[in-house]
């Protein structure tokens, strides 16, 4: 069992949990993920490690309530425990001291996993420009944290309610147009965002790393459910990734594969809602 030490609501449906997991914290590196199972009935859910503290023996996860599993997860409180937590899984981000200017891009909830990457990029001596994108000002997460660890932070919002009006690629294109010598771009966010980032940098041949989150079960290379097309090869995101060269990833196939269980997700959500209603009714009685 893995105890929830702290629960923070970042936005109405975006939550941050600090979990007691000393063994995982001991080994976690930026870019890696965990797989968790809330209870006996739960799915195995992969989530990128948003932060870790080796001294305190904790890891942080940040998630958006979208499906049945995250709804159940969100219903837990401080002091409650998660049944299963396994990690750190996947390869760590390739971070070297002499890279130069690195642009870290986080879109929406993707800001969470980009945070430890940007922090380490900066720690080892690189110049870090962070671009954070959100639909609007209200759901911008981790802005203060990002400002502390980046040399420069650029915010974009779809509706222009904060920072530059537009997408993360709007800001990225501006940096490129200014002639900034970008050594590498690391982008994490919705698949469509990662695709457009890769499309933006491709003509300039700027190395672009993306972190993929396909559907997976075990997370250790056993099921092959997370396979992604990268160049001529089929890779397993859980063990070969989750980070890949954005210029080689077949994003269209990835998006199709992510939609595989959409109709089933509705059934499951309905099931959870009805369960909750039943519990409520019983409590009223």
């Amino acid at each position: 069992m893995f105890k929830i030490l702290n629960k923070k609501v970042l936005h109405e449906n975006i939550l941050q949990f600090t979990l007691e997991a000393p063994l995982i914290a001991r080994k976690a590196e930026p870019g890696q993920f965990v797989v968790l199972r809330v209870n006996e009935y739960g799915e195995r859910v992969p989530l990128t490690i948003a932060d870790f503290n080796r001294e305190k023996g904790t890891i942080d996860i940040i998630f958006m309530v979208i499906g049945a599993s995250t709804t159940v997860l969100a219903s837990l409180n401080e002091g409650d425990s998660i049944l299963d937590l396994v990690g750190p899984l996947g390869k760590k981000t390739d971070i070297r001291p002499d890279m130069g200017t690195v642009v870290c891009i986080g879109g929406g909830i993707g800001v969470a996993p980009i945070y430890p990457i940007a922090r380490k990029m900066k720690q080892v001596g690189n110049h870090v420009i962070t671009i954070m994108g959100a639909k609007n000002k209200d759901i911008l997460i981790l802005k203060d944290e990002m400002e502390k660890i980046s040399d420069e932070v650029i915010v974009t919002t779809d509706d222009g309610s904060y920072g530059i009006k537009g997408f993360v690629t709007t800001a990225l294109q501006q940096l490129i147009d200014k002639g900034i010598d970008i050594a590498e771009v690391v982008a994490i966010g919705p698949v469509i965002m990662m695709k457009t980032v890769a499309d933006t940098t491709r003509p300039y041949n700027i190395k672009t790393i993306v972190s993929l989150n396909p559907i997976m079960v075990d997370g250790t290379g056993m099921c092959g459910g997370c396979r992604v097309q990268v160049g001529d090869e089929t890779k397993f995101a859980c063990v070969d990734g989750p980070e890949f060269d954005g210029h080689l990833v077949d994003f269209v196939n990835l998006m199709e594969r992510q939609r595989m269980y959409r109709p089933k997700e509705e059934i499951e959500k309905d099931h959870i809602c009805r369960l909750a209603k039943k519990v409520e009714e019983m409590e009223e009685k």
Partner: peptide, 26 residues
């Protein structure tokens, strides 16, 4: 599916009892 995934979803994750168990299988 790989047989590993197909069988794991069903045996380990009990997809045959979906939606009581949350893991789906198509």
């Amino acid at each position: 599916y790989s047989s590993n995934e197909f069988l794991t979803r069903c045996n380990l994750m009990k997809a045959y009892r979906f939606p009581e168990y949350a893991t789906p299988i198509n």
